[in-house]
Simulated assay, not measured.
Amino acid sequence: MTAAAGVAVTYGLVRIIVGLQDVLVLIGLALFLAIGLEPAVAWLTRHRFPRWLAVTTVFVAGLLAVGGFLTAAIPVVVEQASQFIAKAPAYLREAQDHSTLLGRLNERFHLQQQVESLVSGSALGSGLLGAGQAVFSALANVLIAVVLTVYFVADLPRIRAGAYRLLPRSRRPRAILLGDEIFTKVGGYVLGNLAISVIAGVLTLLWLLIFDIPYPALLAITVAILDLIPVVGSVVGGVLVSLVALTVSLPVFLATIGFFVVYRLLEDYLLVPRIIGGAVKIPALVTVVAVIVGGALLGVIGALVAIPVAAALLLLLREVLHPRLDRT
């Protein structure tokens, strides 16, 4: 009966975790972001800011930055989206012309039929309804994540102290040292990854403006967002921009591919080692495997948090497991 009760309790806990999977992911993401913002809050508290004022300052600065970015970006994106809609008939005529590149692609892959099937009849209505639900769900999740992040940042010292109290007193000092180092790695990774994404977006915008590639602001924002995903994000962004550059000319297309290859090397061997290399030191193989596994488990969020999680596991492996195995 004891064994059966244990199995029943375990099964119930698994069902609860599966049912709360989306909520747990949001909580984990908010905690991850709170740890990433902690270095900025700690810097302000060291300069005689009260904790509440430091948290408020960081979040007000973040909201102002996001608000300013959206104020500058939304009109440009709307204008470029309107230009795309206005040029859609020309693209359609080009797709029907078999002498053009777009026409040959349409003839081979039946692009026009696929687009028409997506926007026709009930498919359009269901697509709009699904898109509306997805947008509403995304906005709700973002709001929940922001609110949770505020609470986590405000109470992070208390949360850390409470987590350390769960450990035996004899092992608590060692656990505090390891925990603080893990927090430092996560915070450095979050801020560094954000800085690298901004650099990727700015450089992409300059390149697009120089060669007069269509929709520069929209593509630059897309590259900046995708670059938040380690390893694969910049590659996907480069492929999208290169495909748009192909509508200008073949030399511009090839030059854009070369630009993203050079930027990827610059990011891997200069930006990442200098900006976040000191905080997160893990082998390249572990980085790739961690991103693949994290993406398979939790999608984009899993790929985003995979590297600091892998760094924390390697730290525990090096500082806890290896010494214990060496003593046996």
Rank of each mutant, 00 (worst) to 15 (best):
S242A: 15
I159R: 04
L63H: 07
V76Q: 15
I257W: 09
G302F: 04
A255D: 13
R93V: 07
D22Y: 12
L53D: 01
A306E: 00
I257C: 06
L205K: 11
L265V: 15
L156F: 01
A123H: 13
N193P: 03
D97K: 13
A284L: 00
L317W: 12
H322G: 06
V236E: 05
V23F: 14
V288T: 00
G28N: 07
A90R: 07
A154V: 08
L270K: 05
K185H: 00
L315M: 06
Q133L: 14
I182K: 02
V280F: 00
P283F: 05
L63N: 12
T71C: 05
V78Y: 03
I27R: 10
S197Y: 04
T57C: 09
F69V: 14
L156P: 01
A138V: 05
V280M: 08
L219H: 02
V135M: 09
V60A: 15
V305H: 00
L205T: 08
A61P: 07
A195Q: 14
Q112C: 10
L304R: 03
A154S: 10
S137P: 00
A217I: 15
A40Q: 08
P157W: 11
L26T: 01
L208G: 01
I176G: 15
L70A: 11
E94H: 11
V320P: 04
F32I: 09
E79L: 08
V248N: 03
L218A: 10
L139C: 01
L297H: 08
G299F: 11
Y215N: 14
I159A: 11
L148W: 10
V153R: 02
A175M: 03
P251G: 02
G127P: 00
